[in-house]
């Protein structure tokens, strides 16, 4: 379980996160949604240790992240833009990441097959297309069979077929009891894979609960979101 409790963060006295609370449960895909600059990326970076929260508790199965970096042994992260040194080959990148963990990359071969990366192992990262880079990022995020999976716009630069395959992989991970946090602007994707959503607006959680409950009879998640915001703040 990922626990986020009363997390606050300001940049140059400008509050970005103002007491954010929610939990991500194992076996569930939790989607973090909200407009641009609402604090989604900052919150994700706080969980990853890239941004240091001013206040609050961020914990992975009761391990407070301020205690050390050990929790990252069980963490898989896929950023929006995957970037590695241009001159390293795919094999070298995978070996590098394997060398930094005590766990074996038990899912590596399976993922390389599923994501059709087998033929690119000796290619330098600089020679890969945008889609291939994203697939490599996905393989890096999942090859250690992590307990917590954090995804930032994971299918943004994937073709429809690969995006579909990747969504199936995400759902499969949750079905295997993994804790998945997905940050996405793609609401149809969220509707397809997430069971719970956190709607973040101006640094505060506006809704945290099940997707079904949030939709409450609406045609899709997008219209449900418009209805929700309209009720709260008046017409957009």
């Amino acid at each position: 379980m990922i626990e986020i409790k009363n997390v606050r963060k300001s940049f140059n006295n400008r509050p970005v996160l103002m007491g954010v609370d929610f939990v991500c449960r194992p076996g569930v895909v939790t989607a973090l949604i909200g407009p641009n600059s609402c604090g989604k990326s900052t919150l994700l970076k706080c969980l990853l240790g890239l941004v240091i929260a001013d206040q609050g508790r961020l914990a992975f199965d009761n391990f407070d992240i301020s205690q050390g970096v050990e929790y990252r042994e069980k963490l898989g992260y896929l950023p929006q833009i995957v970037d590695f040194p241009e001159n390293l080959t795919v094999t070298e990148i995978l070996e590098l990441l394997e060398s930094l963990r005590s766990k074996k990359a038990i899912k590596k071969d399976l993922l390389l097959g599923q994501l059709e990366l087998g033929g690119l192992l000796n290619h330098a990262f600089g020679e890969l297309s945008g889609g291939a880079r994203q697939k490599l990022g996905a393989a890096c995020a999942l090859m250690f069979d992590p307990d917590y999976i954090l995804l930032d716009e994971p299918t943004a630069s994937l073709d429809p077929q690969t995006a579909l395959a990747f969504r199936e992989i995400i759902s499969g991970q949750a079905n295997r009891g993994k804790t998945v946090l997905l940050v996405s602007h793609n609401l149809s994707e969220v509707e397809q894979v997430a069971q719970e959503i956190v709607f973040l607006l101006e640094g505060k959680v506006q809704y945290f609960g099940s997707v079904k409950q949030f939709m409450n009879g609406s045609l899709n998640l997008e219209s449900a979101l418009v209805n929700f915001v309209t009720k709260r703040k008046g017409p957009l």
Binding site: L48, L50, R72
Partner: peptide, 15 residues
Amino acid sequence: ANGSFRHLILVQPVS
């Protein structure tokens, strides 16, 4: 130029 890569390394169990 290697900022994004460094972020990926920083989310590994490395200080």
